[in-house]
Structures are given as C-alpha cells and as structure tokens.
C-alpha cells in the first residue's frame, strides 16, 4: 500500500517535468512490462546487470530471460516467479520513462527503492496486538460475508486500520464486523467512491468521542464540539478514501472517483438496501463506527 501515486512522487521530487510525466502516462497504457523491470523491482538484478543483458541482446537473438539465466543473473525459478507474480502497475510508468530516456536503469532502481521505503504504508510499525487484531478482523469478514473477499475490499480494510494507526493511534480494538441493515446515526459523515465498482463509506462517532477523535487527528486540543471537530470526521474519511483510490490507481490501474463528503442528518436512522457492514472500533475515548456499503455486487 502506498501513500501516493508513483507519478506524483516523481513530480514532487522534480525528477520529471509535467510534460514528460504526461507523455509517459500516455505511453505506458500501451506497453508491456519487461522482465528487466521486474527483476530490478524484485531486487534480483542490478541496473547494470540489466543494461548488460540488453547490450548482449543486440548481439544474440535470444530472450532477456534466457541470457540472464546464461549469465547467472537469474535462475529459471526466479524467471518463472517474476512472470507469474502480480506486478504493481506503477512499474510500467517507470519503464516508460526509461524508454523515453528521461531516467536510466540506475536511477530507476534507486527510485523504486526510495519510493517504496518513503511511501510504503505496510512497513508502518504495527504492534503485535494490532497485527493480530487486524488479521482477526479480516478473518471475521471472510466468515461473515460467506464469500471470498475481493482484493479491493481487503485493501480498503487494511488501509482503514493503517490510517487509524497513523492518524489516530494504535490503542484501538476492532470489534468483529456485523452485517447491518439499519443504523441509528450519532454524528455521521459519508462519502461515495465511484467507478469500476462503488462503495459507500460512513464514519459515525458519538458527540462525546468526536472531540477526542479530532484532537488526536489534528494534533491540537479541542474542548468543544465545534466546526473544526465536525470537519475532522469528513477530513479523515476523505483522506482514507483518497488513499484507497490512489492505491487502486497505482497498483491495479483502476481509476475511481470520490464525491465530496456529506454530513448525514443527526440522529436519523440510516437504512441500507445493499450488502453493508458495521465495524465498531473501540478506543479508550469511545467507540467510532465505520460502515461500508458495497454496491453493484453481482
């Protein structure tokens, strides 16, 4: 899971210009990932080894993998593994920049390492208990849903846990999720994710817990249930969903959009026609509730 899109990372570090990035994004949609790119990403080959194989390829009519095996850079097993594993889509963008001569293989290799260590959310320090409760929560979902969870769903639940650890604190306990048809709202905000699939996300927090939630999220001490405190719920939900669609774009080339967050009517009864889950998260300052409705499930 990543904190930002690879192209954005390159742009913010002035590695590419806006024009070069747009050109590479256009080009990548029509290109195939190369074994050399994958080998660099997996750490099996260095950039100079990849360069050497490419040079050898101009003399011998052989495939990249074949030469790399002959030269002892890769084993047959590694080649098979590289070709079968799922590849994050952002590698294609880097490859397009190499092909355009904007960066070379060495830079690409270093960029991948920097990008992953700077932006890898999974590397975030979880305590053992947190890891265990996340594992349990996902497992509960499998049982509850009576069907395999899609990778998108799992990714959203992981990001939720991750965002809680990053922005609110890791002293929480997720309660096993519950199938839900109606829910009495306290102070509740919601946001729609649309595109190849649709998800409606809700964050509901009793007023008494909102102030502590906001104080932790913003890093300031709030004392009243004021507009900043209320805005913090929308802000958090928007951040979580934003990171989710960035990851879908970066990893799977699935482009989704977000609607602006909406404040639900206070103390109204929310009713759900479609598959909906309630996820209570217990913090020392109170319980916060996530609700996720999955639309268009066949």
């Amino acid at each position: 899971m990543y904190a930002q899109f690879f192209g954005n990372y390159l742009l913010s570090r002035n590695i590419v210009t806006r024009e070069q990035l747009i050109e590479a994004m256009r080009k990548k949609s029509s290109s195939h990932i190369r074994l050399g790119t994958l080998a660099i990403h997996a750490g099996y080959m260095t950039a100079s080894e990849v360069n050497r194989v490419i040079v050898l390829q101009t003399h011998e009519d052989k495939r990249f993998g074949e030469i790399a095996i002959n030269e002892g850079y890769l084993t047959e097993l590694q080649v098979a593994e590289l070709l079968s594993e799922q590849k994050p889509d952002f590698l294609l963008l880097g490859q397009a920049l190499v092909e355009d001569g904007i960066i070379d293989h060495e830079q690409f290799q270093n960029l991948i390492i920097d990008y992953q260590s700077d932006n890898d959310l999974t590397a975030f320090e979880y305590s053992t208990e947190t890891k265990e409760s996340i594992r349990q929560m996902i497992e509960h979902f499998f049982v509850l849903a009576e069907r395999p969870l899609s990778t998108h769903e799992i990714s959203l639940y992981h990001l939720l846990m991750n965002s809680l650890v990053r922005f609110i604190g890791d002293d929480f306990t997720p309660v096993p999720p519950i199938r839900c048809q109606e829910y009495p709202a306290n102070y509740c905000v919601s946001q729609e994710i649309n595109g190849a699939f649709s998800v409606h996300t809700y964050l509901d927090i009793p007023e008494s817990a909102c102030i502590d939630f906001a104080s932790r999220y913003v890093g300031e001490t709030f004392t009243e249930f004021d507009e900043y405190v209320r805005a913090s719920l929308e802000d958090f939900l928007n951040l979580l969903n934003g990171l989710f669609i960035v990851n879908m774009s970066n990893d799977c080339s699935i482009e989704l959009t977000l609607d602006p967050p909406v404040v639900e009517e206070t103390e109204s009864l929310l009713t759900f026609q479609e598959e909906t889950y309630l996820l209570p998260i217990v913090y020392p300052f109170g319980t916060i509730y996530f609700i996720i409705t999955l639309h268009n499930r066949k």
């Binding site: 954005n8 806006r18 747009i22 669609i245």
Partner: peptide, 19 residues
C-alpha cells in the same frame, strides 16, 4: 487526497503547476 493517475493528468493538463 485523490492523487490518482487520471486526476494528476487532468489537473496538469488543465494547467496546475504541481500536485
């Protein structure tokens, strides 16, 4: 929060200097 590939492209093409 929505720095996806298509949003980044759309913003830059519209004339944004950075994202």
């Amino acid at each position: 929060s929505v720095g996806t590939q298509s949003q980044l492209k759309a913003a830059i093409e519209a004339g944004a200097k950075d994202f």
